[in-house]
C-alpha cells in the first residue's frame, strides 16, 4: 500500500503520504516530490545513485532524505524514478535509479527549493505510516 496525495497550500505545495511500512513511506515521499518537478517517465537513460542519511528522529530523516534528492537535482540535474529504501539501525540507505533532467526535452513543472519542517508530521497509525511534508517552491 502506497498513497500520495497532493496538498494545496497558498504559496507552496505539500504531500500527504500513507504507506504500509516506513520504507515505503519514504519511497512514496520521493516519488511524490519527483513528480512535482517533472514527468519522470520521460527521463532519459537510467543512472543509479546511492544515498545514505544518518540516523535521527524519523521526521528529521525524512526531511534530510528529501533535501538530499533536491540537492542531487539542483546541483547535477539528477532526478529519481525508482527508489528502494532500507533502514539499518536508523540509518537510511537508498538506491535511487533515475535520469538526468534535460530542460530542452523534459517537462518543467515546479522548482522545489527545499522540503521544510513546516507542519511536518510522521506517525504510525495502527498498521500503517502517515506523513505530511510541505515544500518551499
Amino acid at each position: 500500500m502506497k498513497e500520495i496525495e497532493y496538498l494545496d497550500i497558498s504559496g507552496d505545495v505539500g504531500l500527504r503520504l500513507r504507506a504500509g511500512s516506513l520504507e515505503e513511506l519514504f519511497e512514496a515521499a520521493a516519488e511524490g516530490m519527483a513528480s512535482l518537478i517533472t514527468d519522470t517517465s520521460a527521463l532519459g537513460e537510467s543512472e543509479q545513485k546511492e544515498v545514505v542519511i544518518p540516523a535521527g528522529r524519523g521526521d528529521d530523516v525524512l526531511i534530510a532524505w528529501l533535501n538530499e534528492l533536491v540537492f542531487l537535482f539542483d546541483a547535477y540535474g539528477f532526478i529519481g524514478r525508482d527508489f528502494r529504501v532500507t533502514f539499518h539501525k536508523g540509518e537510511l540507505r537508498a538506491s535511487v535509479s533515475g535520469g538526468t533532467f534535460n530542460p530542452a526535452v523534459n517537462e518543467r513543472n515546479l522548482l522545489i527549493k527545499a522540503a521544510t519542517y513546516h507542519n511536518l508530521c510522521l506517525k504510525k497509525i495502527n498498521s500503517h505510516w502517515e506523513a505530511t511534508v510541505v515544500f518551499d517552491i
Binding site: 533535501n67 539542483d74 527549493k113 521544510t116 518551499d136
Partner: peptide
Amino acid sequence: RGFGHQVCTDFLEVMQ
C-alpha cells in the same frame, strides 16, 4: 537561487 536555498536548509538543521 539554489545557493541560498541550500544555506537555509543547512542552517535550519543547525538551528533544530
